[in-house]
């Protein structure tokens, strides 16, 4: 017959209940003694947040002001590592670079952010596009300032791109070894204008409609590919198969043109522009970094004896 509840014959064997009791006692005791210590340690630890595991997993180096940390701050950050760790002392002078390239890129970011927010409220259909803009202007919280910012940042970006190109030309920064990057820049200039132009139609108001009508009417006259252009008729171009039809998705600026405009504006051109921007920035680094004010070269040092170089 089994004994009940740990009353062993010699009284030495402790019953299950007893063991459970003492274990529980130990647990309670440990909470009483350990936890306050751990809490103290925790509070001490919070006073040094840079020592926490979370922090050190994100930031891989210290932040004391040492040359090593200054360099690591740039090199170990994915967004900043396009920069070198060090830069020519003169190259940071604003009067030389005007900062227009950087400002252009910043405006592109602003436009992406405001543009994504605008997309939440906009349908690229003839029925709704104009109403959506009215809705944005009058009902959406901060909708008006959102649209305004997108518009003015776009205009400002056109200006800063021009000024950037102007500065690069004036300092001769397109010269060797930066010739190729100048070409990427020209393509980016064209894409900037196209981005702005495709956005012009989207409110579907009179301003955008007629501006795009005027703009795309030019495509009619494209030599060879437009139905009113030189040699267009000979190649069988009509209003229904020429290059303008391809741009508008129709023979007039209508629903398809709105949709095409929208897709080019929000997806097509930004992707191409982003790819070219990556190449552009990469080449800035590879071709010798931000073009700092160089040492002047004297005409007497230019011998012009290398003979014609082939283009």
């Amino acid at each position: 017959m089994p004994e009940e509840n740990g009353n062993g014959k010699n009284g030495k064997e402790v019953g299950l209940l007893e063991r459970l009791k003492s274990a529980l006692h130990e647990d309670v005791q440990s909470i009483r003694t350990d936890m306050p210590t751990k809490a103290k340690e925790q509070i001490e630890g919070l006073k040094k947040p840079t020592k926490t595991a979370v922090y050190t997993s994100i930031f891989r180096h210290k932040h004391d002001d040492t040359p090593r940390n200054r360099a690591l701050g740039v090199l170990s950050n994915v967004f900043l590592h396009l920069h070198p760790a060090k830069i020519n002392r003169d190259a940071v002078r604003y009067s030389f670079t005007w900062g227009m390239g950087g400002i252009t890129f910043y405006l592109f970011i602003v436009l992406t952010l405001t543009g994504v927010l605008l997309m939440f409220y906009y349908h690229p259909t003839k029925l709704q596009a104009f109403r959506d803009v009215l809705y944005l202007e009058h009902d959406v919280p901060f909708g008006k300032i959102l649209r305004n910012m997108h518009r003015w940042a776009a205009h400002l970006m056109v200006i800063t791109v021009w000024l950037h190109m102007f500065r690069v030309f004036l300092t001769g920064s397109y010269k060797a070894p930066r010739q190729f990057n100048w070409n990427i820049g020209v393509l980016l200039l064209v894409l900037t204008l196209l981005l702005s132009f495709t956005g012009y139609l989207l409110p579907d108001d009179q301003l955008g409609f007629w501006a795009v009508t005027v703009g795309t009417n030019m495509a009619r006259a494209t030599p060879l590919l437009g139905h009113e252009g030189p040699f267009g008729k000979m190649l069988g171009m009509t209003p229904y198969n020429d290059v303008r039809f391809g741009l508008l998705g129709g023979s007039i600026v209508d629903a398809n043109a709105l949709l095409r405009s929208y897709i080019w504006h929000c997806i097509g051109i930004p992707i191409v522009a982003s790819v070219l921007m990556i190449v552009h920035f990469w080449r800035v680094r590879k071709d010798g970094g931000i073009s700092g004010p160089g040492s002047v070269v004297l005409a007497s040092e230019d011998k012009a004896q290398r003979g014609p170089r082939h283009a």
Binding site: L170, T171, G172, S173, K175, N183, V296, A299
Partner: peptide, 17 residues
């Protein structure tokens, strides 16, 4: 605009106003 760097053979004025 794109041909500018390839036809401007003047080595002077590279990197300064």
């Amino acid at each position: 605009l794109m041909v500018i760097p390839y036809i401007d053979t003047n080595p002077l004025g590279n990197g300064y106003y």
